[in-house]
Design a protein around this nucleic acid. Structure first.
Lengths: 146, 146
DNA sequence: CAAATATAATTGATATATCAATTATATATA
DNA sequence: TATATATAATTGATATATCAATTATATTTG
């Protein structure tokens, strides 16, 4: 069996890329906002655009499971970025609101993220990005098949 | 600030792809080999080709830190896939050997991994893969710049 | 409508990851 | 050569993730 080493595969390149981007982005966030992780920032961005999202839905968007999301939101409530209240329409869910402190973060965060995205994609054409997305989608589709 | 949601970005697509691949690969491994994670499997593959690797070097190859690698190798030693012994050439390092039980795994594992890679890359041309790698490298380079 | 099934969130147990400090050894340099 | 610096690995404290079981509520269906 002549198998290339994991480090020589495209999967290694993919994983390495996202980890490098996360490190880069986290560093730039931490310089400006204390005690704020990328994942927490993403939760704020999602809730800001879609306040009706359930914890389960947010979890999926940021690649966590339900249990992790419960705990993540607990800490964000403790840190006073979010407020949880009962949803009388469906008492299994919560209404999750962004507090004033959370809104302050939402003033500072977007320009940093914008900058992170721009500088990490510098020199890459629109066409290349399209290509990249198409190929990644093929891989995802293949992995979804049994 | 008009920022697209994280889920609409290429970074989301990249992260989603590698997570889907990992899930897919882990599932196929677990069906054939009990109690074996992808990461442990990769450590075996690397050590098999490069027995002289230090824990630190292996850590980097599988995207962990030193502390995690220490603990990971501890469990692999406990499970009798690896054997650690003193390296008299440099007493800070260890010599890490693959046991017979580890070698058994190395008979079963490669065809599974080969199959995982093949099926997840089905329908993707050599040229597309090259493109993919080039673009990912551009992103990595950008993230490495301050 | 009652029972069965599904869904959202939580919890506890466990595993894994991360950070800073520490230990042991090796290498560089004054 | 003695001291400073660098490196490999470990440890303890803490944070985060994952799995299975549980709780509470909604929805479906016989």
């Amino acid at each position: 069996m002549n198998l290339s080493l994991p480090s020589e595969t495209i999967f290694h390149a993919i994983e390495s890329t996202i980890k490098d981007y996360r490190k880069f982005a986290q560093k730039n966030i931490s310089e400006k906002i204390k005690d704020m992780t990328i994942d927490q920032g993403m939760v704020l961005l999602f809730l800001n655009e879609h306040p009706e999202l359930t914890q389960k839905e947010i979890a999926e968007l940021v690649f966590k499971d339900n249990a992790s999301m419960t705990r993540m939101i607990n800490t964000m409530v403790q840190k006073k970025h979010l407020k949880r209240s009962i949803n009388s329409k469906d008492r299994r869910r919560y209404i999750i609101e962004i507090t004033d402190k959370g809104k302050d973060v939402l003033k500072t965060l977007p320009p940093i993220i914008h900058q992170n995205r721009n500088s990490s994609l510098k020199g890459i054409t629109k066409n290349e990005l399209n290509q990249l997305e198409i190929i990644l989608n093929k891989i995802r589709t293949n992995c979804a098949k049994t």
